[in-house]
Each structure stands twice: as C-alpha cells, then as structure tokens.
C-alpha cells in the first residue's frame, strides 16, 4: 500500500453532487437514452425515438410554446408554494409553542392532510372560478400542509437542554424563541419546504391535466387528444428537469443554512 492510498482513505466523503458523481449520473442517463434509441430503431415499441422528441422540443422551443407552458406551470407552483410556506412557518411555530394553538389547529391539519389536494379541485373551481385562483389554491394547500407539519415537528423536538442552557444564561422567552427555537428547527423546516415543493409540483401538473388553458400538464392533455407522443415526451422531460432543478436549489439552500449540523 502506498502513502497516497492512505491519504485517500483520510479524505472526507465526496458530496452527493461532486464532479465524480455528476459524471456517473450523466453517463447513466446517456445509457438509458441509448437503450431507448436502440429499442425504437429496432421497432420494438411505438414510442417516438429520442431524435423525434428532440426535434419536437426544438420546434416547441423555437415557437415559444414550450417556454410559455413552463412559465405558466412554474408561476403557479412558485406563487402557491411561497404563500403556503410563508403561512406555514408562523402557524407551525404557534402550534409548537402554544399547547392551545396546537389543540385548536391540529385536527384541521390532520383532516386536510388525508384529502389529496386534487380532490379539492372540483370544489375550488366551483367556488373560485376557472382562472388561476383554484390552481394556485390547491398548490398552496399542498405546500402549506407539508411545511406546517414539519415546522411544528421541528419546534416540539427542540432539545430541552438548549432551552435550559439559554434560560440559565439569562434569556427570556422572546430571545429563546429567536435564537434557539428558530435555528434549532430550521433543518426540519427546510425538509418541509423540500417535501412541500415536491408536492406543489406534483399538484400543479395534475391540476393542469384537469382544468387549465396553459402549462405543461395542459399541453400533455392536448397532445393526448391528437396522439402526439413526442409532445407528451417533451412535456414529461420538462417537468422532470424543472422539478430536479428546484429540488437542487432547495438542497443547496439547506446546506447553506444548516452547515453547522453534524451529518452522519
């Protein structure tokens, strides 16, 4: 064994998205697309070939439709997600901090959590009309429910020792809340945001399949009527890519804000 090997062992574990892992990821995708291409070339399936999908993607991108659809879907997700998260954090803190707030709010949250957000759509359309509001509302609901539960979990699981340590140093309730409870529950809140963003994204596509005049979900639904498989593929890939990008952004923010955490 050489000295170099020893040093290698000492090196910290590579991060999830270090160039090495990224390289493997790209390679894996390339392999999958290669198989898909071979399958369509050999006439094994009715699926469009990667080349046909790519051609359609370029067409849709050039005439602006793809961007328009992405914008419409993203806008709904971001507005719904932002509203849901902004409301979820104070409500989650209230529930975690005050027993009474928990007792009053928790039953509602448990109840709405078991209703799939999509099941709210018919009601939302009837009561809110067919414009953006019902779609944004269900996304808001999906994001809110995920984030509120994890914020509340974060607050109630703050180690009592930290609170006691702050109290014996002279901290009052306000200081404990701002300097202990909030930072201690940040990791939980961010996990909630990540789950919330995932369910917001899932909800928007489904909502557009049901009732929309624009967006990636709407486009797929239209394409289905005309048996336009390449467009369906382009939309699917766009959904996947946007979802992945948003998730990575949240993970980055999470790493930034919780770098103090011990990770196993």
């Amino acid at each position: 064994m050489s000295v170099i090997d020893d040093i290698d062992i000492e090196r910290p574990k590579t991060r999830r998205w270090s160039p090495g892992n990224l390289g493997w990821g790209v390679l894996s995708f390339a392999g999958g697309i290669g198989l898909w291409w071979l399958a369509t070339l050999a006439g094994l399936s009715e699926l469009p070939s990667p080349a046909a999908v790519l051609r359609r993607a370029v067409e849709l991108a050039l005439d602006g439709q793809l961007w328009g659809d992405m914008y419409a879907s993203l806008r709904r997700v971001l507005i719904g997600f932002a509203l849901g998260s902004v409301l979820a954090v104070p409500v989650g803190f209230l529930m975690g901090w005050y027993r009474i707030a928990r007792a009053v709010i928790d039953p509602w949250i448990q109840f709405f959590r078991v209703i799939p957000p999509l099941a709210i759509i018919p009601l939302a359309i009837v009561t809110m009309g067919i414009d953006e509001t019902p779609k944004i509302f269900v996304i808001f609901l999906a994001a809110f429910l995920s984030a509120v539960v994890s914020t509340y979990q974060g607050v109630v699981s703050v180690d009592r020792t930290y609170i006691n340590a702050a109290r014996v140093l002279g901290a009052n309730d306000g200081t404990i809340f701002a300097r202990v409870v909030i930072p201690a529950s940040t990791p939980f809140i961010l996990v909630g945001f990540r789950i919330g963003l995932g369910s917001a994204w899932a909800t928007v596509v489904a909502a557009e399949l049901i009732a929309a005049q624009s967006g990636l979900g709407f486009r797929m639904q239209q394409a289905q009527l005309y048996y336009d498989l390449p467009t369906i593929f382009v939309s699917l890939v766009a959904i996947g890519v946007l979802g992945l990008i948003m998730d990575r952004i949240v993970v980055r923010i999470e790493e930034r804000l919780t770098h103090w955490q011990e990770r196993v």
């Binding site: 020792t161 930290y162 006691n164 340590a165 702050a166 014996v168 140093l169 002279g170 930072p183 103090w260």
Partner: peptide, 27 residues
C-alpha cells in the same frame, strides 16, 4: 433561572448553530 447561577450541563448543551465564540458571547 438567572445569570448569577451558571450551569454546566452533562450534555454540553452548546448551541450547534453558533461558533465557539458566539456560544460564549451569548450570555
């Protein structure tokens, strides 16, 4: 509780989101 009585807990109870100096400066 009050700052006239300092407590050192068995589980250290350092705030992990603060640096060593920020921990000491907290009080």
């Amino acid at each position: 509780p009050g700052p006239d009585r300092g407590v050192i807990f068995q589980q250290y109870a350092l705030f992990p989101w603060m640096t060593v100096r920020e921990n000491v400066e907290f009080g």
